[in-house]
Amino acid sequence: MSSEPDGPRKGSSRNDTTVAAAKSASSSDGARVKPADALFKNLTRSAGLGLLALIAAIAAFLVLEATDALSANTGNFLTTTEWFPNGSPPVFGVAALLFGTLLTAVIAMVIAVPVAVGIALFITVYAPRRLATPLAFVVDLLAAVPSVIFGLWGLIVLVPRMEGVQKFLTDYFGWIPLFATDNGVVGRSIFVASVVLAIMILPIVAALSREVFLQVPTAHREAALALGATRWEMIRTAVLPYGRPGVISASMLGLGRAMGETIAVALVLPASFDISWQVLSPAGNTIAANVANGFAEANDVGRGALIASGLVLFVVTMIVNMIARAIIARRREFSGAAA
């Protein structure tokens, strides 16, 4: 039996909403809508709405929990640096945590992004094909490995060896406030946490940047070369400008991961709640690490406080992404999207 004559009958037996939707759709855009299209449209629409409702419910729950804790708080949540939500009266604030989160993430980016871009450029521009293909494969593979693996490697192998690097930095560059220390004491610092984070996000940023640079049309690369550009000049005139939005997006993904990373940072940092620019001194904490450290022992207020800090992280991540989008959009007409 052919399915052709069956079509209309099946259609008529479908539920009313689908038919109504099909009717309204066909009347609105003036074209006949096939039953399958209408069905698919409704499926996707309800999936989308369902997801939105779920997110709204989760957000409502979190905000409710957080509000309870915030109203019990005797400090200012945004400016207080201490974190005693389980005390009586509870006093806690996200200032030091937020500071640590942003600082570790930014330092991690400063370390990871140039290295990742360098790796991506090496693979796409410099390496002979015999080397580029396996290298690209390895980077993609590493990007697929959960970042906590790199975090563990960093903790076990790298952290014990960071002492010397940190000593060197403070001895020779201690005159830069960032690298100053109290009497040369270095330790489990923001800097070490940042290096571990950098290692964690390096593969994903490198893999995405490589994809981005691969997209640069041969025509633009040849245009630069034909003008007498060296390979590096070709990268500067054709590859980097074209890849800029993609690299920014890749970096933002890395930044998001760095800010949200819990265990690795929790294992490195001594969980102290102070705001200090001395990135080599043993101090610091981040929002995500604090959640990992504190959730088990938290009472109701403590849990609410952690949730509130999580919401702050969420908002900050959103702001960072919006800024990145704004940067990309600012030069959209020069992005090559039109070409």
Binding site: P217, A219, H220, E222, A223, A224, L225, A226, L227, G228, A229, T237, A238, P241, Y242, R244, R331, F334, S335, G336, A337, A338, A339
Partner: peptide
């Protein structure tokens, strides 16, 4: 050599970011 010998390609290829 390429600075002395200019080239125009089949498809126009101005740098899109410039």
């Amino acid at each position: 050599v390429r600075r002395a010998v200019g080239m125009v390609f089949q498809r126009p290829n101005p740098f899109p970011t410039m």
